Computed example of a mutant assay.
Amino acid sequence: MSDTRREPDLDRLHSRLESAALAADLLDVAYTIVDSPLGKLLLAATRRGLVRVAFAVENHDDVLQSLSEKISPRVLRSPRQLDVAAREVEEYFGRRRRVFDVPLDLSLSRGFRQLVQLRLPDIGYGRTCSYKEMAELVGSPKAVRAVGTACATNPLPIVVPCHRVLRTDGSPGGYVGGIDAKTTLLTLEAAA
């Protein structure tokens, strides 16, 4: 069988499996892979909302394995379940969206990390703040390093904008997608 015939057959099979898993309520984590100016992004969601955005440098297979361990082993590629999230990501990169409206599932973070991640959207599109300012914003002015850790472990980069947090001297600091990705996001937002 040629590759061109095999691909539609696989697509139909996957679609049937996806439909059957949804009908039987056997899908706890849906995911898809989308193209972006930063490369392939993995988007994953639970029934509560978008739970993970991952860059290719994070190794999507490792991310899926982690989701199966932390949330549920019932993980399936299900692009239809992520249509809204994928559309919003595309609109963001197309400069047609400044705020994400997709529901979020923040269950991969807890405690102080989750507190910081909840406040990250308060940094408006095209703006930045320092790790120190973020620590003050969450009421823990001495927790600058902990803010850095919360940003570094943000399971929803881009959507929960940890890229807007910089070092006090204005340099980018680290970023899960790499410094080039952080710089690209900041440049995208500054150009709007």
Rank of each mutant, 00 (worst) to 15 (best):
T149N: 11
H163C: 04
A56Y: 11
I33Q: 13
A20Y: 10
V99R: 15
E136K: 12
R167K: 11
S109Y: 12
T184V: 01
G139T: 13
H163F: 05
D61F: 09
L38W: 02
L10K: 07
L106F: 15
Y175Q: 02
E90M: 05
R87D: 05
R167Y: 11
G139M: 04
N59H: 12
L67K: 04
V102Q: 03
L26M: 14
D180N: 13
V147D: 03
L27D: 01
D122C: 09
A190Y: 11
G178P: 01
D25C: 08
A30Y: 07
L67Y: 03
L115G: 08
S130R: 06
Y92I: 04
A30N: 03
S66Q: 07
G124F: 01
M1F: 15
Q114V: 12
A30D: 02
L38R: 07
H14A: 08
S109Q: 14
L82I: 00
A143V: 10
L13C: 02
V116R: 09
L186W: 14
D101Q: 11
Q65P: 00
G174T: 03
V160Q: 07
R48H: 11
P103L: 00
A44M: 07
Y131K: 14
R113V: 02
S2P: 12
T184Q: 05
A192Y: 15
L50Q: 05
V99Q: 13
E133K: 12
D3S: 14
R6S: 04
P161L: 00
R167E: 10
E91T: 01
G170S: 06
Q117T: 03
S130F: 09
R5I: 04
A135F: 05
E7I: 15
S78A: 15
R127Q: 12
D9H: 15
S130M: 11
V138Y: 09
S68E: 08
L188V: 01
L118S: 10
E90P: 11
A56P: 12
G178E: 01
T46Y: 00
D101V: 04
R12S: 06
K40R: 13
R16M: 04
A54C: 01
A21E: 00
A20H: 14
P103R: 04
S19L: 14
A24W: 14
V176R: 09
A143S: 15
M1H: 13
V53L: 07
M134S: 07
H163G: 03
L22S: 06
V102P: 05
L26R: 15
S66K: 09
Q117R: 08
V99L: 00
Q81R: 15
G126Y: 13
A86W: 11
R77F: 05
A85I: 06
R47V: 04
V53Q: 02
D35G: 11
G124N: 12
I158W: 08
E88P: 07
P141Q: 11
P103V: 00
E136I: 01
